[in-house]
Simulated assay, not measured.
Amino acid sequence: MAKLLYGFSCSVDGFVAGPGGDMSWLTPYLGPDPLVDELIPEIGALLVGRRTYGGDDPHRGTEGEGKAFGGGWEGPQFVLTHRPADPAPGVTFVDNLVGAVAAAKEAAGEKYVNVLGADVARQCLEAGVLDEILAMPVPVLLGDGVRMFDRPGGKPVGLEELRPHWYRVV
């Protein structure tokens, strides 16, 4: 059965995107990464938030623009939204978390469903369906933007380290 993984790059101060969802901060840090290279073949589907789906692309201006992992991955994407965009090959718009998770898991088979988008990851965590987290810190302080996890007034979430930067939600 597929597992839900929130895999992301973030600034050392915990932001996955700059103000307004700007991803251009990440562009200088893109490049070969053994951990990402190891992960990509293990991803069977993506569960994507609507802001992430329609947002900035750190691969803008390259041949990987508009493609998952800069073109390093292809497969089914499930976008959680109440505002579907124009149809795109391999992309399914789903208007509820339960349906989106179920469809993505079915499509992923025995591989991971990689969650893209801080708000979708938070929803998955609160619903008790997020299995693992892979946090890849980038050596920069952004100071403002979209936090990798934001839940004011929420309780701490326990994590068990599986290996460096990789955690199981407990």
Rank of each mutant, 00 (worst) to 15 (best):
M1W: 10
M1Q: 14
L5R: 05
L5T: 01
Y6F: 05
Y6C: 00
G7N: 10
S9M: 14
S11W: 06
V16M: 10
V16H: 01
V16A: 04
G18S: 03
M23N: 01
W25R: 02
T27W: 04
T27D: 10
Y29M: 07
G31H: 06
P32E: 11
L39Q: 06
L39K: 04
L39Y: 00
L39H: 00
I40T: 10
I40V: 13
P41M: 05
P41T: 08
E42W: 01
I43K: 03
I43M: 07
G44W: 06
A45S: 14
L47G: 05
G49E: 08
R51S: 10
T52Y: 08
Y53W: 12
Y53L: 09
D56M: 07
D56I: 07
P58F: 06
P58L: 02
H59K: 05
R60E: 14
G64S: 00
F69W: 09
G71E: 09
G72K: 10
G72Q: 13
W73I: 00
W73H: 01
E74A: 13
G75K: 01
G75H: 11
P76I: 11
Q77K: 14
F78Q: 02
L80Q: 08
L80C: 11
L80E: 07
H82V: 12
R83V: 14
P84R: 08
A85Q: 14
P87Y: 07
P87Q: 14
A88N: 06
V91Q: 09
V91K: 11
T92H: 14
F93V: 02
D95T: 08
N96Y: 01
L97D: 13
L97G: 07
V98N: 15
A100T: 07
V101F: 04
A103K: 13
A104P: 10
E106M: 12
G109C: 10
E110P: 15
N114I: 00
V115T: 14
G117T: 13
G117L: 12
A118T: 09
A118G: 11
D119M: 13
V120H: 10
Q123H: 14
L125T: 14
E126S: 15
E126D: 15
E126I: 11
V129E: 12
V129F: 06
L130W: 00
D131R: 01
D131S: 06
E132W: 03
L134K: 04
P137T: 00
P137N: 02
P137M: 03
V138R: 08
V140S: 14
L141G: 03
L142D: 15
G143D: 13
D144C: 11
D144Q: 13
G145Q: 01
M148H: 12
M148V: 12
D150T: 02
D150L: 05
D150N: 11
G153W: 11
G154F: 05
K155L: 12
P156C: 04
V157I: 12
G158T: 08
G158K: 08
L159M: 07
E160P: 04
E160C: 05
L162I: 15
L162F: 09
R163Y: 13
P164A: 03
P164F: 11
W166E: 03
Y167L: 01
Y167V: 01
V170D: 15
